[in-house]
Simulated assay, not measured.
Amino acid sequence: MHMSQTSCGRNHARTIGHIELSEVSGRRVVVDRTPATVRRPDPGMLEIGMQILGLGIVRQAGREAALRPGDFALYDTRLPYQLEFPEAFTTFVVRFPRAELRVGDHEIAAGLARTIRFDQGIGGVVSPFLYGLRRGLADNELRDSARLESAVFDLVSAVVEGEYLGTRRHSGAVLLSSVRAFIEAQLSNIDLTTRMIADRHHISPRYLQRLFEEQGQTVAGWIRHRRLEKCRNDLADQRLVHLSIGAICSRYGLADPSHFSKIFKEEYGVPPREYRNLMARTATSPSSTHSTM
């Protein structure tokens, strides 16, 4: 395991049966578990990292989990991973043998590097339990207990099972569909950003961008495209001739008419006013009316 920009230290550590508990604090640290270090003998350990302070990012198996205080994620020491803490942080780590979980490899693989939020679903149960372990570690009140070990393994198994079922129900395609529906409903919101969308869907901005990149798009580009399409449809609608161009573009989060005119022309080849006039002439021309022979 390699660290860069290292400025961290272990606050507390304790082993209870098969479980290792530790708390680490620092500033701007990147931890890399590389393929070279993975090749060394590994007993097959899993770790849960719960963020206590600052932002933590877990990357493994092509996924990325962004953790805020109270959130946690699972990662596997037999696979390469990266932990990034871009600011002052404290993280609480629970380490244990993967063989102790009551779930299979497929379920474990599906649960790696996923953000488990402290205020949703099973995370609302497990996060307070982890906080209790941390408090007991800090106060030196933890005692070796088979019951404690069993509780840890049962709860982590429940998390992994829940994530496995969730990934089967919510694939990347379904998530992308959900994101696009959210964007469509929020086009009028001038504060619609990649960060806002990612936060609402409990994923990192980087992962959100990746979903769109797989479709040859960007998040910002998609938002702009949908806004312009909405404006174009309204400009062509003869029932909306009473609305100014500025009023139409502002309906969809484009507050600056001059900027709107520029990007509209870039997209469609003509300024919005000219496009509107063209649509009006088309609507009233004889060739646009239906006739029978």
Rank of each mutant, 00 (worst) to 15 (best):
residue 96 F to M: 13
residue 187 L to P: 03
residue 27 R to L: 04
residue 9 G to L: 05
residue 12 H to M: 09
residue 51 Q to C: 05
residue 89 F to C: 04
residue 146 A to S: 13
residue 110 A to F: 01
residue 264 F to L: 12
residue 286 P to R: 13
residue 224 R to S: 11
residue 110 A to M: 08
residue 275 Y to C: 06
residue 192 L to G: 08
residue 37 T to P: 07
residue 16 I to S: 06
residue 46 L to I: 15
residue 158 A to Q: 14
residue 202 H to A: 15
residue 236 A to M: 07
residue 44 G to Q: 04
residue 232 R to P: 03
residue 189 N to T: 00
residue 81 Y to I: 01
residue 150 S to A: 15
residue 289 T to Y: 08
residue 27 R to P: 02
residue 121 G to T: 12
residue 105 D to E: 15
residue 284 T to G: 10
residue 173 A to E: 13
residue 231 C to L: 04
residue 166 G to S: 12
residue 161 E to F: 00
residue 246 G to S: 13
residue 25 S to G: 02
residue 264 F to S: 05
residue 53 L to E: 09
residue 202 H to S: 14
residue 40 R to I: 13
residue 252 Y to F: 14
residue 76 D to S: 05
residue 250 S to P: 02
residue 242 H to P: 00
residue 234 D to I: 06
residue 292 T to C: 07
residue 223 I to N: 02
residue 11 N to T: 15
residue 246 G to E: 14
residue 101 L to Q: 06
residue 18 H to R: 14
residue 268 Y to K: 07
residue 86 P to Y: 06
residue 274 E to V: 05
residue 77 T to Y: 05
residue 111 G to R: 13
residue 148 L to A: 06
residue 5 Q to K: 12
residue 3 M to D: 04
residue 96 F to V: 09
residue 24 V to K: 01
residue 35 P to T: 00
residue 82 Q to C: 10
residue 52 I to C: 07
residue 264 F to N: 05
residue 141 E to T: 01
residue 100 E to L: 10
residue 166 G to I: 00
residue 137 L to H: 11
residue 58 V to F: 03
residue 257 P to Y: 14
residue 161 E to I: 15
residue 69 P to W: 08
residue 93 V to Q: 15
residue 219 V to A: 03
residue 102 R to H: 11
residue 254 L to T: 12
residue 15 T to M: 10
residue 7 S to V: 12
residue 147 R to S: 02
residue 129 F to G: 04
residue 114 R to C: 09
residue 171 S to H: 03
residue 208 L to P: 05
residue 139 D to P: 00
residue 47 E to W: 00
residue 25 S to C: 03
residue 163 E to Q: 09
residue 41 P to W: 01
residue 252 Y to M: 06
residue 115 T to A: 10
residue 284 T to L: 13
residue 252 Y to W: 14
residue 185 A to W: 11
residue 15 T to H: 07
residue 97 P to V: 04
residue 44 G to I: 00
residue 195 R to A: 15
residue 225 H to A: 09
residue 76 D to Y: 02
residue 188 S to W: 01
residue 281 R to D: 08
residue 148 L to I: 01
residue 89 F to M: 00
residue 53 L to S: 03
residue 15 T to A: 11
residue 282 T to Y: 03
residue 176 L to E: 06
residue 214 E to F: 13
residue 206 R to G: 06
residue 47 E to T: 04
residue 199 D to C: 07
